[in-house]
Design a protein around this nucleic acid. Structure first.
Lengths: 142, 142
DNA sequence: CTGGATCCACAGGGATACTG
DNA sequence: CAGTATCCCTGTGGATCCAG
């Protein structure tokens, strides 16, 4: 074989690897348990703290606060405090935050479109697991 | 009534909330620590186990195996086993898996484009945190 | 109302050694 | 080469109480 001939584009590979790191950075932020849903709640316009909490429903104060702080830290949301009695805080997506919604919608689409397929694949896989602990197919398309 | 958002369409909100759940389902899979990078490694075509491992570089066998199994379970990759000596296993993106790359590229773009902005926002936030801490905490015991 | 602080349970994930 | 099994540590995230 061509041992000396490595036709694999190394440069492109490392490039893609770098890109993956960048994306992973982002996904570490928006891919956590709550961020996406919070962003979704914010996508309609400025919302108050407890409004978000009710909207997401299931999130704890702690997680909501942490998530919002993370988003604020990354410049994705703006936090506006009104020193009234009782206090009131509005959260609003920044321009950057709104731009994030665009690629997020692409995932929305993919998720909704292929969700049935994925769920079907999971069940299919479960069946195979049960059946073939030893019957596993050793396919070799030569 | 100069309130922020009393006119929020509730129906649309709950609809969006549902969508968010779907997306979160997906992000729980592709948003974990390694899946994206593994998919990236697979995007060039069929790759062998240790090839991926070298490509991702930093992933443990355990995590690579788990990630691949998860992807296979969701029907995003195909696992092909060649019962040769030594054994050889190829992993390849399915049609569904390749379709995922499309919305993923959108995130690629967003991430790469706005990464500097985000990093800058983080540093800015860190500075504000420091200042705010000394500004707020006017109390100096001792 | 809007958080901060603390305690605690659990899963994610790394390192290592072993198998086929 | 391609995994599996085990141990163990850390972070995530929930519940609860406290404060401005």
């Amino acid at each position: 074989m061509s041992d000396t001939n490595n036709f694999v584009p190394v440069l492109e590979e490392s490039h893609s690897n770098e890109k993956c790191r960048e994306v992973h950075d982002i996904l570490a932020r928006i891919g956590d348990k709550w961020t996406v849903m919070v962003v979704g709640a914010l996508s309609h316009g400025p919302v108050r703290y407890n409004q978000i909490r009710r909207s997401v429903e299931g999130i704890s104060q702690r997680m909501l606060t942490l998530t919002l702080k993370g988003l604020e830290q990354d410049g994705l949301v703006i936090r506006t405090m009104y020193p009234t009695i009782p206090p009131r805080v509005d959260y609003e997506l920044t321009d950057l935050g709104e731009k994030l919604i665009v690629p997020l919608e692409a995932l929305y689409g993919w998720a909704i479109e292929h969700r049935p397929t994925i769920l079907a694949a999971r069940e299919e896989f479960a069946k195979k697991e049960q059946r073939g602990a030893s019957t596993r197919a050793c396919v070799r398309p030569m």
